[in-house]
Write a protein that binds this DNA or RNA. Structure first.
Lengths: 162, 162
DNA sequence: CTTATTAAGGACAATATATATCCGCAAATG
DNA sequence: CATTTGCGGATATATATTGTCCTTAATAAG
């Protein structure tokens, strides 16, 4: 079990969008070049963000993507689920029902005990992701990334945004 | 991202092994028939458990698998990691290093901020799995599964264990 | 000792998913 | 009008998952 690389891409792209001046759009092309990613395929990840209403888009020159909500109102889980889907990481195929000792018409009152534990772990994972917002990420990044690199990066992308 | 079906299989098999009388072995064949699973492929999952030293095996008639430790000393994480491997569910390909604004010889002091959050969530998932033992599972199962079905099931598998 | 049974593991095939690439369309910009 | 852009469909490739088949060596039972 491993997350798609698109999850990593989407998170980094959102981090950049989160640091953009109000209202500015950034194109797939700029985001792909900044991160050294295949433009056409990155586009699919950005489309997922768009379908999840995490970003807004506009067409034409100087078009592209911008966040649809304040950075404090978008969290990691929003982004991960936009790309990976919302379904749980553990699927119960209810193999207990194959037990030959069960009456054929027997109906379980609860979900499988094994699944309940796996789903509880899944929720713990999601809750952690939910607890970190893009605002938190930007704050951490500005501590980690040297100020001049950070500044140059935004000048670089804004130049490509026309 | 989704866990292998072998994880579900391994967990259910361990639950059965956990309820077995001391010292008794159960064969792949019996476990496969009980759960309605492909014997040859289930065998791979059981081999994973064996390689992780969670179960002991013996050959020949009346051979098979039994738990290598008391049920209180085997938890969900042990089993999940035996099948899925121990590597994290999020891999950081360090795409920040592709940023053209970074000096080429620049060396990061910390892991990527994005990865740190993802790994934190991964740990929350693992901690939950670690907190539930096979003993806990057996207890839950005996509450959920009607006593007669539970009893019949063990008579059924023990009969096939010779 | 002989025979049946078993786990282990290698080779292989089938299927599903992830990772791309390419193209045409419609909307926006200037 | 010409260019740029997001969007979605079609298609191709690579990798992972799921499943089968076979051989080998060890073990237990008769």
């Amino acid at each position: 079990m491993i997350l798609k690389s698109q999850v990593e891409w989407a998170l980094h792209c959102c981090a950049i969008l989160a640091g953009l001046p109000q209202g500015r759009y950034l194109s797939t092309k700029a985001l792909a070049e900044l991160h050294g990613l295949p433009k056409e395929y990155l586009s699919k990840a950005l489309q997922s963000l768009s379908q999840a209403s995490l970003v807004e888009t506009t067409l034409g020159p100087s078009g592209g993507y911008r966040l649809a909500r304040p950075t404090s109102e978008i969290n990691f889980l929003d982004i991960v689920e936009a790309v990976e889907g919302k379904s749980r990481t553990f699927t119960c195929s209810n193999i207990r029902a194959n037990n030959p000792c069960r009456p054929k018409d027997f109906c379980d009152s609860k979900p499988c005990s094994v699944a309940r534990v796996m789903w509880q772990a899944d929720e713990a994972w999601r809750n952690t992701l939910k607890s970190v917002s893009l605002a938190d990420l930007v704050e951490t990044l500005s501590e980690d990334v040297p100020a001049d690199i950070w500044k140059n990066t935004f000048e670089w992308v804004l130049q490509r945004a026309g």
